[in-house]
Amino acid sequence: MGTSVEETIKEIQGRENIFVAYSQTTKLPYVTCGEESFNDQAWFFTEEEAIKEFGKKKIEEKVLLMGMRYEKKDFPKMYGLLFSIGVNTIMWNDGGEQMEIDLERIVRKPDLSKVEPQKRPLINPTLQLSGIYFMQELRRPVPQEEHKNLRALEEEVIVNLRKSDFLVAMQRKGDEPDKINIPYLKNKEGKILQPVFSDVMEFEKFAKGKKLRIAKVPFNKLPNILIEQAESLVINPMGFNLVLNRDQLKKIIG
């Protein structure tokens, strides 16, 4: 008789380390949609050899993976990442049997409704998830005609862009507190890009070491924050960047 779900949950909670399958494309946990459950799944393994074997099988589908080892002290960070990208189940592989388990049965999901609205960290799990699926398929090294549902995945990203809020970095201008600068980036070609962020984690990477203020802006207002010299706006969800010029932004907004 196999191990029960309850026993497996206790094993996961008590482990000293876990191996998680990551996508080489997004540098985030590899996510699949369950064929029968339609759940959004991350893949967990007890042993390094088991995740290597899983990776070899996925190479046949032109899916490139890598294994990430998490120690127990980093479990809260790992689970927080899974919630933030919209994963709701894990596929547990102990080297023999495989089992799908609801993520919230392993760890409690943070209840942000109890946090004051102005203090809630911005996360866009639906956008992150649709972007992950799109990028995992877009970067799969196969001929164009072999890509699966690419157009539908792209349209889902666009729908979720329209529904999302974004973070914009702002900086006081020298000794003039009433004047605000919006930091910009330059790409290798010297083009000026205006960065905005879909979640607080990506914003913090950009803001590290800088004294920046922050504003939350809905997608349909993003054209308004493009600085005069910026040619495009670069949206930074986790795992990928979207570069959109003013015309593309307006077309998506409709």
Rank of each mutant, 00 (worst) to 15 (best):
M170V: 09
P29A: 01
E49P: 05
I132S: 01
R108S: 12
I90W: 02
S130Q: 07
V31P: 02
I90T: 01
K27W: 14
Q136G: 10
I214V: 12
F166N: 02
P76L: 03
E6S: 06
M201T: 15
K221T: 06
S198T: 09
G95L: 01
R139E: 15
V243G: 05
K251Q: 13
V217G: 00
E146Y: 13
N224Y: 14
Q41S: 04
E7Y: 10
N160T: 05
S4K: 06
K191E: 15
A169H: 02
E116T: 11
R162Q: 11
V196W: 08
L150K: 05
L28S: 04
Q98H: 11
E7W: 09
E145G: 12
P237I: 00
A21E: 11
F166A: 01
V217R: 00
D199L: 04
K250A: 11
D94C: 05
V217M: 02
E60L: 07
K10F: 11
E228K: 09
C33N: 04
L244C: 09
N236K: 14
V87W: 01
E11L: 09
E53M: 04
R69Q: 12
G67W: 10
P195Q: 15
L81H: 02
I85Y: 01
I180R: 00
E36R: 05
E61G: 07
Y184I: 13
F134A: 07
N39P: 06
K211Y: 14
G86T: 01
L28H: 03
R140M: 13
M91G: 08
V5D: 12
S23L: 04
V31I: 12
L244K: 06
K208F: 14
L222F: 05
I225Q: 01
W92K: 02
I253F: 06
F206D: 03
P223G: 13
Q144C: 14
P195T: 15
V31Y: 02
E47T: 10
K27G: 14
P110N: 08
E71F: 12
Q41E: 04
K210G: 13
G190M: 15
E176H: 09
P223N: 10
I90C: 03
V159N: 14
G86H: 00
Q41V: 07
L150C: 12
F197S: 07
Q24L: 14
T26Y: 06
M68E: 05
F75T: 01
V142I: 15
N220E: 13
T126W: 09
I106S: 01
F206K: 10
L153M: 15
E6G: 03
N224K: 14
E49S: 13
E202Y: 12
I252K: 02
G80D: 03
V168P: 00
L244T: 06
L64I: 11
D94M: 09
P195G: 15
L244F: 10
N17E: 09
I235Q: 07
N224G: 14
